[in-house]
Amino acid sequence: MAGKRVNTTATARLKQDYLRITKDPVPFVKAIPLSSNILEWHYIVNGPENSPYEGGIYHGKLVFPREFPFKPPSIYMVTPNGRFKCNTRLCLSISDFHPDTWNPAWSVSTILTGLLSFMLEKSPTLGSIETSDHTKRQLAAQSGLFNLNNKIFNELFPDVVDKIKEDIRKREEEMRNATSNGSQSGTDTRNSSQTVGGGNLARNGIFGSALANVVVIIGFAAFAYTVKLVLKSIVE
């Protein structure tokens, strides 16, 4: 009976937290429990602007004990992010690694706010990794496509899935347009070169023809003058 009462307490508290987070969302964060198990929540963190995570969509999960809120949850990150190891329990002051620092008054919103805050820091802890900002930005750009391969992500966040697919479609279209414009530009350049070259050839042909005519005329004149001299000498 005691275990059942504890489980009822955890369920009631998590339902209350879900209503709270739905009404007053945490900035950059969205979270929802599994319909089949309210003790397992999945969240997404949208990388804040002016951070190495900007544009990234990071999926993770919270696993609550039956004794919640008297014991803290386990915290995991699923999407590669450059800050935390994936699918590994994270050692944070708000996770089950530190039950001594846990406060039963803390809610799911408090946990997710703390997670985001720690993500933006560089303090090392068990489950954290060190990577360059360049690596974090690369992972942020790849995060959406990575999440599409996760079944639970697709089921719990269909609106985010649609946005990711639309963004991917737009990027592909921009790439196709850029490639098409590049090819057209190359064709126009070649045509322009041919036109200019053809014009030069035409001008060179006209000039060459005129020069040939002048040479012929001069030749005839010289020949006529020579003949005139010969005839004059014969007459004399």
Results as ranks from 00 to 15, higher is better:
Y76K: 09
F70L: 15
M119T: 07
V78D: 02
L116S: 09
T113W: 12
L92S: 03
V78H: 10
C86A: 10
C91S: 04
T125F: 14
L90C: 00
G60S: 09
S123L: 08
L112M: 09
N103Y: 06
G82E: 10
G82C: 11
R66H: 06
A105M: 14
L90K: 02
G114S: 12
S93L: 10
F70T: 15
V63T: 11
P99Y: 08
V108G: 01
R66N: 07
F68P: 04
S109A: 15
V78Q: 02
S123K: 14
H98S: 11
C91M: 03
D100K: 11
L115C: 08
K85A: 06
H98V: 03
K71Y: 10
P80F: 05
M119V: 02
N87M: 14
L126R: 11
H59E: 07
K71P: 09
D96A: 13
Y76R: 05
V108Q: 01
M119D: 03
V108A: 02
F70A: 14
L92A: 09
M119Q: 08
S128G: 05
V63A: 08
T88L: 09
R66Q: 13
R89F: 04
R89S: 11
I129V: 15
S74A: 14
N87I: 13
P72F: 01
W106L: 07
S107I: 09
P73H: 01
S117R: 06
C86D: 09
H98Q: 14
T101Q: 15
L92H: 02
P73D: 05
N81M: 03
T110Q: 00
H98D: 13
P124Q: 07
R66T: 13
P72E: 02
M77A: 06
P65E: 00
R66I: 05
P73M: 08
P73K: 00
S128H: 07
P73S: 04
K122G: 13
K122D: 15
M119F: 10
P72A: 00
W106F: 12
S74F: 06
W102N: 04
N81C: 05
F70H: 15
S117Q: 10
H98M: 11
Y76A: 05
C86S: 15
C86G: 13
